[in-house]
């Protein structure tokens, strides 16, 4: 469904990504593992059209999307959940969701306010509150809900477990499971191997901008040297 081939990104003189290749299949949850600065976020942002100076090929459903404006990529069916949450603090919860709302599409489940409030009961209670009044965990939920309002087929989750309490991370795992049940595909960037193992089907490991591993978690567990070398777990 998503095919990334020989993706290369530069920032100034530094090469952030070199020849990154990965794919995400239909209704699959794929983890992109790596340490900080390895290139996880850059990969996800490049796919989403948020990085300048990138080259390579990114195809989604057979159409080349690299180089398109990020709003066009979103409209093609990709949803982006940023690492820093980036909710609109001066807008209410409902208005935040409204910004994310897009027309329903035939090939993806349609999300409504009601449906999302079922999945995120905390948000339902606070629908008229301003984004900035929410707690960190609630903001994390809102940023996912907001992206789902765009009815994506593929969700890109950038470091969803970073900087939040373990209890909320557990909720996050439940939600990702829910998305998979709804038929969505998910690409998730993570440093937390334990969390990634719980939620995803298979893994990639990226280090210094290069892809180092592609395969199952079982294989990773059987060969601890891989994660030691590239993730330094």
């Amino acid at each position: 469904m998503l095919d990334v081939k020989t993706l290369t990104a530069r920032y100034g003189r530094a090469q952030i990504l070199s020849d990154v290749t990965l794919s995400v299949g239909e209704n699959e949850v794929v983890a992109l593992l790596g340490r900080n600065g390895a290139g996880k976020s850059t990969t996800i942002k490049s796919v989403m059209g948020l990085v300048q100076h990138v080259s390579g090929q990114v195809t989604y459903d057979g159409q080349a999307i690299l180089g398109r404006a990020s709003h066009m990529i979103c409209r093609a069916g990709l949803g982006y959940v940023p690492e820093e949450r980036r909710i609109f603090g001066e807008l209410t919860v409902e208005e935040n969701l409204e910004v994310g709302r897009r027309e329903p599409r035939a090939d993806a489940p349609e999300w409504t306010f009601e449906h999302l409030f079922e999945l995120f009961p905390n948000l339902a209670e606070r629908r008229r509150n301003l984004g900035k009044q929410l707690s960190g965990g609630e903001q994390q939920m809102l940023t996912i809900a907001r992206t789902l309002m765009g009815n994506p087929r593929l969700v890109l989750l950038d470091e969803p477990s970073e900087g939040i309490a373990p209890v909320i991370v557990e909720q996050m795992a439940t939600i990702i499971g829910e998305l998979k049940r709804e038929g969505l595909s998910v690409l998730i960037s993570e440093q937390n191997l334990h969390f990634a193992r719980i939620v995803s089907d298979r893994a990639y490991i990226i280090e210094k901008g290069q892809m180092r591993y592609e395969g199952s978690f079982a294989h990773l567990d059987a060969h601890p040297d891989i994660s030691t070398r590239y993730l330094a777990v």
Partner: peptide, 11 residues
Amino acid sequence: DEPTAGMAPSE
């Protein structure tokens, strides 16, 4: 304040 935020486990 959160000295290791945003770093890989071994780091």
